[in-house]
Design a protein around this nucleic acid. Structure first.
Length: 633
RNA sequence: GCGCCCGUAGCUCAACAGGAUAGAGCAUUGGAUUUCUAAUCCAAAUGUUGGGGGUUCGAGUCCCUCCGGGCGCGCCA
């Protein structure tokens, strides 16, 4: 119904300017009940507030102006001043293509970079990482659905202490050669356990040894460097297999080791000195460091960017990475193919693919959990201080709460639940967490059992393929249905559900429709689309039935509004909820209005229209949520 | 100590930018199919939105205060 809103907007802003001599934003609301109207305009409140007039009186003035709209059947002023529109139903149905093919105004060409997943390549991916990846991927799909150009980056911290710690473990605890590592089936699982072992013996001597390993990797000394490269690449490949199970891909994988060897930092350092953003501290706690002044909590504080031993801090690296993301210095990576879906950065020119280019974004979304807010803000401030105001503003921390384990689930897995808190924190170092692949395996197992029970006639290949789609949708929906601010206290019982507000429910609704349309074709010898033609008439329905069908159509018409709101508020859960709501309406109509058995052609046409329209809208939602659409389930 | 976030039905969560009678799922109880996939649908029941005060036509939402919980504030990454 966005096309009608645009029409109303034009009329309202013209009228308001003439009548009240000022511009007011035109805002729409959804009436809480369809009996109150199809759409609400709230302008009377805003104008009334400003002019200190009764909003109801102002609303009355709008009535005559807006009633002239050809789409409008009637207008009612309700409550304290809501302007409620009732559309001409038959006309609305005739123009449904305008709803289905709504095109947003094309904004100036803008390149968006979304960074997400960013799992340290030293152990298996766990449910916390999955929330990040699913949120990031959904954000990407949301943006692309509105026609935006989006590049997806997955940053690989292959030189950090985490990798060094497992290299230490391999070299000094398990004493394995690279050839031996190659024989391990799931290296990420092996390292999950090894990582825990490394921290079990956390004495001074091993700490010292670990630091040494880290420094050697940073300086490029072998065999440490070789091990680090091997491990991080192999674990990365495993992570990509895991995310691929959820339908998640990336355009480019920038590696920290390349940032270091291509000396990004040196350029960033020069730039920061030149712009006077950092300076050398000669006294106090930070003596010998390069620091940046940060204004926070009403006082100037210092943030160390280069340590007194000359090493760069984490923020320092992040600042240079972001200068690259926005294309703010001349430095660039080389790229090569990692597999047929992903490019990875490289520092050597000779194996580089010269035909691709990444970065140089206008807007950047970083999908990182809420604990990193402080540091993300430092990067933003650094950009601003360097004079890159616009880029600083366009750097958006897509922040969300973490995933923890419910005490019940943690106990079931044999973790220590002796804590004051009502949940158990996920910790890679202690090996506390649910591995993503384990969870997906379990979901697949359960889905397969269901499919086999329902369809014993299916080949095992077919059943398995369907089970995979179901498990992926269940996990994706579970991760997306919570608002970003809400901590997910992971519970097996909740996550393994296929009924109620779950991904499979949405999938199932879709399958039902497909099946219905298939049967319709068999029965009537034509496609549903061929039946759905004007003229339309609701005359053969009871008033109650008419309202039920019409409500479903109005709900279905809100897709574009929901998508826009989800993007504006950066809240993917909104779209998940909408998808669920859509399916509830769809299933209700399906259960209460027969199609194939319906003898009255007028009734059949309208019912089919409604279901087909909701089905098409649902398909858009499923694509954005990354939920696959099996033929049967 | 300072900053950010949260507190809503028995449980897990919604509530669009301050809007109309605070809604879903799960669990509970009862019901629907000789009929398009029952992973469905319908109905019943459950609320002082942590407490108190304020702002206004209107507050779960904004402000103040108190209580309870989470996270952050490194020359770690």
């Amino acid at each position: 119904m966005e096309y009608i809103k645009r029409k109303i907007e034009t009329i309202v802003s013209e009228y308001v300017k003439k009548e009240f001599g000022e511009d007011y934003p035109v805002r729409f609301l959804n009436p809480p009940k369809i009996s109150m109207g199809d759409l609400t305009l709230s302008s009377a409140f805003e104008i009334g507030k400003k002019l200190r007039k009764n909003p109801r009186e102002i609303a009355e003035k709008f009535k005559s102006v807006l009633e002239k709209l050809e789409e409008v059947e009637k207008i009612e002023i309700a409550g304290p001043g809501y302007i409620n529109f009732f559309f001409k139903k038959e006309k609305y149905l005739e123009e449904i293509e305008k709803v289905l093919n709504y095109k947003r105004d094309t904004e100036a060409e803008e390149k968006i970079i979304v960074e997400h997943t960013n799992i340290n390549p030293n152990k298996a991916a766990h449910i916390g990482h999955i929330r990040n990846a699913v949120l990031g991927d959904t954000l990407v799909r949301m943006l692309r659905a509105t026609g935006k150009k989006v590049e997806v980056q997955n940053y690989i911290d292959d030189t950090g202490v985490q990798v060094a710690d497992v290299v230490y473990g391999v070299l000094y605890i398990d004493r394995k050669s690279i050839d031996e590592l190659k024989k391990i089936d799931k290296i990420d699982y092996y390292l999950w356990d090894l990582y825990v072992k490394v921290y079990e013996k956390d004495d001074e001597e091993s700490k010292q040894k670990r630091r040494e390993v880290h420094h050697k990797i940073e300086r490029g000394e072998n065999p440490e460097k070789e091990y680090a490269e091997f491990i991080s690449t192999e674990v990365l490949k495993r992570h990509l297999q895991t995310t691929a199970r959820l339908g998640i891909d990336y355009d480019v994988l920038p590696r920290e080791s390349d940032i270091i060897s291509l000396k990004f930092w040196e350029s960033a350092f020069e730039l920061m000195k030149e712009k006077g953003v950092i300076y050398f501290q000669t006294e106090g706690d930070n003596k010998g460091c390069w620091v940046m002044k940060v204004f926070e909590d009403g006082e100037e504080r210092e943030k160390v960017i280069v340590k007194s031993n000359g090493a760069i801090t984490y923020v320092g690296k992040d600042i240079s990475y972001h200068l690259w993301k926005f294309g703010l210095f001349e430095k660039d990576f080389y790229y090569k193919k990692l597999d047929n879906r992903h490019y990875i950065t490289t520092s050597s020119e000779k194996d580089a693919d010269k035909n691709v280019s990444f970065g140089k974004g206008d807007r950047v979304y970083n999908v990182i959990d809420q604990r990193q807010s402080y540091l993300q803000n430092i990067v933003k401030k650094a950009l601003k201080k360097m004079g890159f105001e616009k880029q600083s503003e366009n750097l958006i921390h897509f922040s969300y709460e973490v995933v923890a384990l419910s005490k019940k689930s943690a106990k079931e897995m044999g973790f220590n639940t002796d804590t004051d808190k009502s949940f158990v924190e996920v910790s890679g170092r202690r090996g506390v967490g649910v591995k993503a692949d384990d969870l997906i395996d379990e979901l697949e197992k359960r889905a397969l059992k269901e499919v086999k029970e329902r369809h014993p006639e299916f080949s095992s290949e077919k059943s398995e393929s369907i089970a995979k789609m179901i498990s992926s949708s269940a996990l994706r929906y579970y991760m997306i249905k919570y608002t970003l601010n809400s901590m997910i206290v992971f519970d097996f019982e909740e996550a393994l559900k296929f009924e109620g507000e779950t991904g499979p429910y949405l999938q199932y609704s879709n399958v039902r429709m497909k099946s219905l349309f298939r049967k319709f074709e068999e029965e009537f010898g034509k496609k549903p689309e061929d039946e759905i033609n004007p003229p339309y008439s609701f005359d053969s329905f009871e008033p109650k039935e008419r309202e039920e069908l019409w409500e479903a159509i109005i709900i279905g018409s809100r897709f574009d509004n929901e998508l826009d709101t989800a993007i504006k508020n950066l809240e993917p859960s909104r779209l998940a909820k909408y998808g669920f709501y859509l399916c509830q309406k769809l299933n209700f109509i399906y259960n209460n209005f027969p199609v194939i058995k319906e003898k009255n052609q007028e009734r059949r046409k309208i019912t089919l229209f409604t279901l087909h329209f909701l089905y098409k809208q649902l398909n858009k939602v499923l694509d954005i949520l990354g939920i696959e659409k099996p033929e049967a389930m």
